[in-house]
Simulated scan of single mutants.
Amino acid sequence: MMKSHFQLNGPWEKVRLHNVTGKDLVYTRGNGDSFDFGDSKLCGLSNAQCLTHDYFVIHRMYRSEMEYISLLGRGRANKSKIKNNRPGYYKSEEIDKLGNDYDVIEFSPDLLKDYYLRFDQFIQACSLAPIIAQSETFIKSRFDKVMGWAAKAKGSDADLFYKLFLNIQLPQVIDLRKVLYRKVVQNKLDQRVMIKHSWLYLIYSIATKLFHHLGLTRLTRKFAFYASKNAFDTNDKLLLDGAEIALKKISFPKQKYADFYREMAIYYYNQGELILACRFINEANKCRPNGPMIIKLHKLYNEES
């Protein structure tokens, strides 16, 4: 659909997705009448009295609920995989929540019925039914793809899909939005924990969890106490929840835990705790058996022990 056209030798300044802008441009309607947008930057339609013809094109921005979600998968020119500039599906009683004024366009029922009749005749005369069927299949396929992305979304992506699916009444979307809501709540909890309890708390929490996995009870209690001093009372249940959250924040593959084990081994070796150094370097070797530094330290520490 062509939304507007302009002369290349005119005083235009910028070509946008929906219009061409320029402070010295003269805009006209299809019948030749000129009008002023009142804005030389965005040129949004401010004069609603534009339906001066017997025929016109209605741009249904949202379309059906399935089409709306499918269109989200078209992405944006800024390389975003999802059209992230939608506040959710429109709802008539909330459509002016942004303070915008909207005009309701009404058509004669008889004229509308005649339009649909002629439309069906046009489809049949041009044998367009197979092409329309292909388009419907494409829309449904892209809808499923977007739903798949949303189901796997984490972090800020979960927040985005939760917003984009606002007001959708399709049962499968309602169910998915409930899942997204739980992720959004968890994200906010994670953020509050991280902001409140600092990077030091994160380190102590990770150490506490790893010491527990290694069976080092004394060090588990010691680092749990350090974490509690930076966050909660020692007996607070949130201490263990915080350790779980901290581990989830690690975005690299699990074999990268070798870095933590290696550094702890070096620390305890320098402290004269050779038995603990061997325990940690052995764990590091399990995670990354081909690491040159780990191989060297593994041999050194175990020979000395």
Rank of each mutant, 00 (worst) to 15 (best):
H5Q: 10
H5M: 13
L8T: 09
V15G: 00
L17M: 11
L17H: 09
V20M: 07
T21D: 04
T21C: 08
G32H: 04
D33Q: 13
G38F: 03
L45E: 11
N47W: 03
N47S: 08
C50D: 01
L51Y: 10
L51C: 10
T52S: 15
R60D: 15
S64R: 05
R74G: 15
R74T: 12
R86I: 01
P87S: 09
K91P: 03
S92T: 12
E94F: 08
I95T: 05
D103C: 01
S108N: 14
Y115D: 07
R118F: 01
F122R: 09
F143Y: 15
A151V: 00
K154L: 13
A158F: 11
I168Q: 09
P171C: 07
R192K: 12
H197C: 15
H197Q: 06
W199G: 04
W199A: 14
S205E: 05
T208C: 15
L214F: 06
L214Q: 13
F225C: 06
D233Y: 06
L239I: 09
D241I: 02
K248R: 14
I250P: 07
P253E: 12
P253N: 12
K256I: 01
K256L: 05
Y257I: 01
A258M: 02
D259A: 06
I266K: 10
A277M: 05
R279K: 14
F280D: 03
Y301M: 12
